[in-house]
Design a protein around this nucleic acid. Structure first.
Length: 423
RNA sequence: GGGCAGGUGGCAGAGUGGUCGAUUGCGCACGCUUGGAAAGCGUGUGUACAGCAAUGUACCGGGGGUUCGAAUCCCCCCCUGCCCGCCA
């Protein structure tokens, strides 16, 4: 949520920054200011009346305490109160209008963000390794996992429907190895605090991180309950500190969490949905940072390096792209996607997305910290999907596949997996 | 699922219609004291909104109502805790 003061005081700048997203959001700005203007007029009016009422009421109380009559003071008070009630209603109404408008406006892209309309305009900012070469034609993961009995898609469909899969035997074990590897890496070497949160969250939490009100259709909600299945660990983890005022010396806070993620993927049926690439439930290790504003961009780089390090240790070729203004998510001010190479599919798969939300989420969540000057300032929140497991899984086995049908695993996984290869 | 009790400032905990943004204690900050610390003493200690400012307004879980006036009375909702039942 943007700061109304920022919109008021830097109107043209805000419009310009919204315009570069290319979604026409800048049109809301004038409307917001119009509502804000009316709102402030009403506030000025009603507060003046309230001040009068309070002062006269006080006098009435004082007289009654002394046993004196106060009829002269009471005259006209009822009317004044009724007027206040009426103006209060107007103000509540305008407040709500303004809130809804503000909630529907995306974050302002950082000044350094590349400008563009869609994914085609995203520059590659880093690559690691090279596309591996094969002496044979590499196979796509679907064929690979079925042959080795790692994943049973039919069983997933039977149990839960399309978009679900069952990991079996070495497949299940590889996933478990990856989870442990990821959590160990981030907690032991990158200094993150491990957290295991609930997977079901209440509505207030979904508002906090911005899934609601705009993206209700993408979420699973429990029938008859005000609970949602978390679409990412970002929701429970960031909400750990909702409505809090942190001490400066607590920052930065860094969390790593494994959770499953639940997504309806409504409207995406038939698109990109082969195998494990786009599913309704997947595991992920998420990284979340809560930081001071002045450090948030260096922290974003750090976060990104931590996410990239995963792929580097696994010896996977990847590229990191910076999202352009038109392709960036709703709440992000700057965002990197890390895409790992999947040779069997001959494509890059997004496994990780590292965003700086600046104070966009913190404002919604009322998450602040106390500065040395004892000012309460909104924190900046960052999050990076440390890695979406199924896609990492896909890249790993497609990259490690051998001509004899086995899959060679990178050395860092040997002890976690208990073997050097899947055979 | 059945029954009950509660939601007040960082925390604990008073307050049942008027000078209460709220007694007090703890905590915290600063000062005095001390060789230094503890103790003790003193002072201070919420947030948001409006306003150039002085200042004003709002907030005792949320919303509505009664009243000149509500933390306090009435209604609805949300949340938390406890007991019983059921259950991994």
């Amino acid at each position: 949520m943007l700061d109304i003061r920022l919109i008021r005081e830097n109107t043209e700048k805000v419009k310009e920054r919204l315009q570069v997203r290319g979604k026409g959001d800048e049109a809301s700005v004038d409307l917001i200011l119009e509502v804000d203007g009316k709102r402030r007029e009403v506030i000025a009016q009603v507060e003046k009346l309230k001040a009068e009422r309070n002062s006269i009421s006080k006098d009435i109380g004082a007289r009654k305490a002394k046993g004196e009559a106060a009829d002269d003071l009471l005259a006209g008070m009822k009317e004044k109160s009724d007027l206040i009630t009426e103006l209060d209603k107007q103000q509540t109404d305008l407040d709500e209008q303004q809130r809804q408008l503000l909630l529907s406006v995306p974050n302002l892209p950082h000044a350094a963000c590349p400008i563009g309309l869609d994914a085609a305009a995203n520059p590659v900012v880093r690559t690691f390794g090279e596309k591996p070469t094969f002496t044979f034609k590499p196979v796509e993961h679907v064929a690979l996992v079925e042959k080795l009995g790692l994943v049973d898609f039919a069983a997933g469909t039977k149990i839960s429907g399309s978009g679900f899969f069952v990991l079996r035997q070495q497949g299940a074990r590889l996933e478990r190895a990856l989870l442990n590897f990821l959590l160990d890496l981030h907690t032991r070497e990158h200094g993150y605090t491990e957290v295991s949160p609930p997977f079901l969250v209440r509505e207030a939490s979904m508002y906090g991180t911005g899934q609601l009100p705009k993206f209700r259709e993408d979420m699973y909600q429990l029938e008859g309950e005000a609970l949602f299945l978390a679409p990412t660990a970002e929701v429970p983890i960031t909400n750990l500190h909702r409505e809090e005022i942190l001490n400066r010396n607590q920052l930065p806070i860094s969390y790593a969490a494994y959770t499953p993620c639940f997504r309806r993927e409504a409207g995406s049926a038939g698109r990109d949905n082969r195998g494990m690439i786009r599913v309704h439930q997947f595991d992920k290790v998420e990284l979340v940072k809560i930081v001071e504003p002045q450090h948030s961009y260096e922290q974003l780089e750090t976060l990104r390096k931590h996410a990239e390090r995963v792929l580097e240790l696994l010896g996977l070729h990847y590229r990191t792209i910076e999202l352009c203004t038109g392709d960036m998510g709703f709440g992000a001010a700057k965002c990197y996607d890390i895409e790992v190479w999947a040779p069997g599919s001959d494509s890059y798969l997004e496994v990780s997305s590292c965003s700086n939300f600046e104070d966009f989420q913190a404002r919604r969540m009322n998450l602040r910290y106390k500065t040395e000057e004892k000012k309460n300032v909104f924190c900046h929140t960052l999050n990076g999907s440390g890695t979406a497991l199924p896609r990492l899984f896909v890249a790993l086995i497609e990259t490690g596949q051998q001509e004899d049908g086995t899959i060679q695993l990178p050395p860092v996984l040997h002890s976690y997996f208990g073997d050097s290869a899947i055979r």
